Amino acid sequence: MHQISPEDLASILSGDPEELDVHLQLVEKDFPIKDCSARFHCHCLTVDANGRVKPDRLAEFMRNAIVNYAIPKSRLDEARARDAKYKSGSAVAALHHEALGTFTDLKNSGEGGEMLLYLLAERFLKIPQVLCKMDLKTDSRVHYHGADGVYASVNDDGILKLFWGESKMYADPTAAVRDCLSSLAPFLIEIDHEGANRERDLVLLSDKADLNDPNLTSAFKKYFNKSSTLSNRVEYCGIALIAFDASFYPPNSVKAVADQVLKAAKNEIEKWTKSVAKRLCAEKLQSFDVQFFCVPIPSAEGFRDTFFEKLGINT
Rank of each mutant, 00 (worst) to 15 (best):
residue 1 M to W: 04
residue 1 M to E: 06
residue 2 H to L: 12
residue 4 I to C: 08
residue 6 P to K: 14
residue 7 E to L: 12
residue 9 L to Q: 11
residue 12 I to F: 03
residue 14 S to L: 14
residue 17 P to S: 11
residue 17 P to G: 08
residue 18 E to R: 08
residue 19 E to P: 04
residue 20 L to A: 09
residue 23 H to Y: 14
residue 31 F to V: 03
residue 34 K to Q: 14
residue 36 C to R: 04
residue 37 S to A: 15
residue 39 R to M: 06
residue 41 H to C: 09
residue 41 H to E: 06
residue 43 H to L: 12
residue 46 T to K: 04
residue 46 T to E: 05
residue 47 V to M: 05
residue 48 D to R: 03
residue 50 N to T: 11
residue 52 R to C: 10
residue 52 R to N: 12
residue 54 K to F: 04
residue 56 D to A: 13
residue 58 L to G: 07
residue 61 F to I: 12
residue 63 R to S: 13
residue 63 R to M: 13
residue 69 Y to S: 08
residue 71 I to Y: 08
residue 81 A to I: 14
residue 81 A to N: 11
residue 87 K to G: 05
residue 88 S to D: 15
residue 92 V to Y: 05
residue 95 L to E: 07
residue 96 H to L: 03
residue 97 H to L: 12
residue 100 L to K: 13
residue 103 F to V: 10
residue 111 E to F: 06
residue 114 E to G: 11
residue 116 L to Q: 03
residue 117 L to F: 10
residue 123 R to I: 02
residue 124 F to H: 15
residue 126 K to D: 15
residue 126 K to V: 05
residue 130 V to D: 09
residue 131 L to Y: 07
residue 133 K to W: 01
residue 136 L to A: 02
residue 140 S to M: 05
residue 140 S to P: 05
residue 143 H to P: 07
residue 144 Y to C: 06
residue 149 G to A: 12
residue 150 V to S: 01
residue 152 A to Q: 03
residue 154 V to Y: 12
residue 156 D to H: 05
residue 157 D to A: 14
residue 159 I to S: 00
residue 164 W to Y: 15
residue 165 G to I: 07
residue 165 G to S: 09
residue 167 S to Q: 00
residue 167 S to T: 03
residue 169 M to W: 06
residue 170 Y to C: 00
residue 172 D to G: 00
residue 174 T to E: 09
residue 177 V to F: 12
residue 180 C to Y: 06
residue 181 L to Y: 05
residue 181 L to G: 06
residue 182 S to G: 14
residue 183 S to N: 09
residue 183 S to Y: 02
residue 186 P to Y: 08
residue 188 L to H: 12
residue 191 I to F: 04
residue 194 E to M: 11
residue 196 A to D: 01
residue 197 N to T: 05
residue 199 E to H: 01
residue 199 E to C: 00
residue 200 R to P: 01
residue 201 D to M: 00
residue 201 D to N: 04
residue 202 L to Y: 01
residue 203 V to K: 13
residue 203 V to R: 13
residue 203 V to D: 08
residue 208 K to Q: 15
residue 209 A to S: 15
residue 212 N to L: 07
residue 214 P to E: 13
residue 215 N to W: 01
residue 216 L to S: 00
residue 217 T to K: 01
residue 219 A to H: 00
residue 223 Y to A: 00
residue 224 F to L: 00
residue 225 N to V: 01
residue 229 T to H: 11
residue 232 N to L: 02
residue 234 V to T: 02
residue 235 E to P: 03
residue 237 C to Y: 03
residue 239 I to Q: 03
residue 239 I to E: 02
residue 244 F to M: 09
residue 246 A to Q: 09
residue 247 S to A: 12
residue 247 S to C: 03
residue 250 P to H: 06
residue 252 N to G: 00
residue 255 K to W: 11
residue 255 K to H: 13
residue 257 V to P: 05
residue 257 V to T: 13
residue 257 V to S: 10
residue 258 A to T: 09
residue 259 D to P: 04
residue 260 Q to T: 15
residue 261 V to T: 13
residue 267 N to M: 01
residue 268 E to H: 08
residue 269 I to L: 15
residue 270 E to N: 15
residue 271 K to I: 06
residue 273 T to F: 08
residue 275 S to Y: 03
residue 282 A to L: 11
residue 287 S to I: 05
residue 290 V to K: 09
residue 292 F to D: 08
residue 292 F to E: 07
residue 292 F to V: 06
residue 293 F to C: 13
residue 295 V to A: 10
residue 297 I to A: 02
residue 298 P to E: 07
residue 301 E to C: 02
residue 307 F to K: 00
residue 308 F to A: 03
residue 308 F to D: 01
residue 310 K to C: 07
residue 310 K to D: 04
residue 315 T to Q: 13
residue 315 T to M: 10
